[in-house]
């Protein structure tokens, strides 16, 4: 921190971006070290039953597996920065070609859910905070407690059961092609998006409520109350602007989690996204694919968290000053 003492904002941004990069670097390196410790490597995996010492050796040379670990790692990293994540072991196509369409599908799913859940759940959270202790607070609180205890696949399958099996309104599986027409896309997306909305809303609502109530317990709110300002006005004019910074953080962090939550939801609906791609790759031990998906997921997740911190700082000028004791 002392290094960048000239500007606390700059030092904060630099420190956060640096720590994000370290995390991404770490996860890619972890996989590399891990794969090198495997008893059987990609060559064995590829050859399967046909693995003889000679063929394994030949393939190892071909794949560059005979090089020392750091060389291989930086080779991979350099290529990855150019968008070359190597070749998928399970279907011998470039990883990036398989990855991009799946990534787009996952982003469509996650952002559709975010567009619905963020305004909705922040609204419910506010409503619960305004009516603290009243029926609406208790009811929304209990509902979110129930959703928080449910595995996300249960929520998904319950929706399938009601809307696909019983009512027949939507397809139970969402195996869309990117060439499908818009109505097909919408009907395929409805249930997965709805599942993600239900999974995320409990978190967002709870956090929003806590953020607003946290502000409500500060001294200046007490002051406003003793002056006899009506409660609704206090919340909207005094508390909400100050709760904005945590709420913005909550929204960005929710997006980060939604990107990751798709892993399970895509499996429920057989939706052709990156989560399903990664899970399949893990099952086949298609390491280049797992690595690419893992690094990409982590990068998106870490970037969104970073954006959350930076946005929160922009919204709340007080955070731009260095905190004491840091």
């Amino acid at each position: 921190m002392v290094l960048f003492a000239n500007s606390p904002v700059k030092s904060f941004v630099v420190a956060r971006v640096a720590s994000g990069l370290v995390s991404i670097f770490f996860i890619s390196f972890l996989v590399f070290v891990g794969t090198s410790m495997l008893p059987g490597d990609a060559a064995n995996a590829l050859l399967g039953q046909n693995a003889t010492p000679e063929t394994v050796l030949a393939l190892r040379t071909e794949l560059g597996l005979d090089q020392p670990l750091p060389v291989r790692y930086f080779h991979w990293l350099g290529n990855a920065l150019h968008g070359d994540f190597g070749t998928s072991l399970s279907n011998s196509q470039p990883v990036i070609n398989l990855l991009v369409p799946r990534l787009i599908n996952s982003l469509i799913l996650a952002f559709s859910a975010a567009a619905i859940v963020l305004p909705l759940a922040v609204g419910i959270g506010l409503l619960a905070a305004i009516n603290r202790g009243k029926a609406i607070d208790t009811v929304t609180g209990s509902i979110s407690a129930i959703f928080l205890s449910m595995p996300s696949f249960l929520i998904g399958y319950l929706l399938v059961f009601i809307f696909a099996v019983k009512l027949g309104l939507f397809p139970p599986l969402s195996m869309v092609r990117s060439s499908a027409s818009l109505p097909t896309w919408i009907s395929a997306l409805t249930l997965p998006v709805l599942t993600l909305v239900l999974v995320a809303q409990a978190h967002v609502m709870k956090l929003t409520r806590a953020a607003v109530l946290g502000v409500m317990s500060s001294d200046y709110i007490l002051m406003a109350e003793t002056k006899g300002i009506p409660r609704n006005r206090i919340i909207l004019k005094h508390a909400l602007p100050n709760a904005l910074s945590p709420i913005v953080s909550i929204c960005m962090i929710t997006m980060a989690y939604l990107i990751v939550d798709v892993v399970v939801i895509e499996a429920v609906f057989n939706y052709p996204g990156m989560g399903k791609l990664m899970v399949d790759a893990v099952a086949y031990r298609d390491i280049p694919m797992v690595l690419a998906c893992g690094v990409l997921f982590s990068t998106i997740f870490i970037s969104l968290n970073l954006a959350a911190d930076l946005l929160a700082m922009l919204v709340n000028p007080r955070q731009r000053l260095p905190r004491k004791g840091n």
């Binding site: 720590s19 994000g20 995390s23 770490f26 996860i27 972890l30 996989v31 891990g34 980060a256 989690y257 990751v260 892993v263 399970v264 990664m278 899970v279 893990v282 797992v290 690595l291 998906c293 893992g294 997921f297 982590s298 997740f301 870490i302 968290n305």
Partner: peptide
């Protein structure tokens, strides 16, 4: 800072 399920999948 790394999503748990992703790290678990990799491990």
């Amino acid at each position: 800072s790394i999503p748990q399920i992703i790290l678990a999948l990799i491990i």
